[in-house]
Amino acid sequence: MNIVMLGATRGMGRALARLLAERGDRVFLLGRDAEELERSAADLAVRAPNFKGFRGHAPCDLSDTQSFAPALRAAEEALGRVDVVVVTAGLFATQEQLEADIDRTELLLRVNFTNTVVFCEHARATLMARGGGTLCVFSSVAGDRGRKPVALYGASKAGLSHYLESLDHRFRDQGLVTICVKPGFVNTGMTAGLKPPPFAGEPEKVARDVLKAIDAGTPMIYTPSIWRLIMLVILHLPRAVMRRVGF
């Protein structure tokens, strides 16, 4: 398969890109830092079965919508055809950090929601122009229910999840498979400063789950899967309880 990934220089995206490269898929990287992209592309190339896999990347900054179309064009040119687009790029900040800094809040909301949706719209066009494909985007369990510690970040992800579900309903029969990935707490650089909860997951596990979802076309997954249960409980807690608890 030919895959374009935005946000694979670190974290869960890095882990997923590795799995793809190791089984021989061709991964084209998009991101905002050329040197980081080059180093990640090198890592993926060595992991390919013959030690010399596909290597390609182009600049794309999620905070700059102008960069989207040229980036996807570069990917298409390099790969010949694009089968899957994966978006793992995203921002996180704690509720306290965001409440103290309105510019940071504005940036996070824009990057995680508006610009991610705009990027997906470009990707949708790219994929559907060739008869379809898979669009796999990382949202979050934080978007499932209004909660104290993730009012802002969670809102950006709630909007994103909503969009992704609608997209799947709207275009599945025209060949576009949309996958919404909802990770729970995962130990990556993004969460390194936070105290991990009991069910914290590892990026490698998430990557395996997501790979399965891509291969099967599953429209929505919780990962690691224990989070399906946790969210089931949280979604059913009465409002009065949610107001009292800290999570």
């Binding site: 090198a42 030690f51 650089g189």
Partner: peptide, 13 residues
């Protein structure tokens, strides 16, 4: 902590 810096940069078989 260095353990997230874990990319292979080159290998010559």
């Amino acid at each position: 902590g260095t353990r997230l810096a874990d990319r292979v940069l080159d290998f010559d078989p």
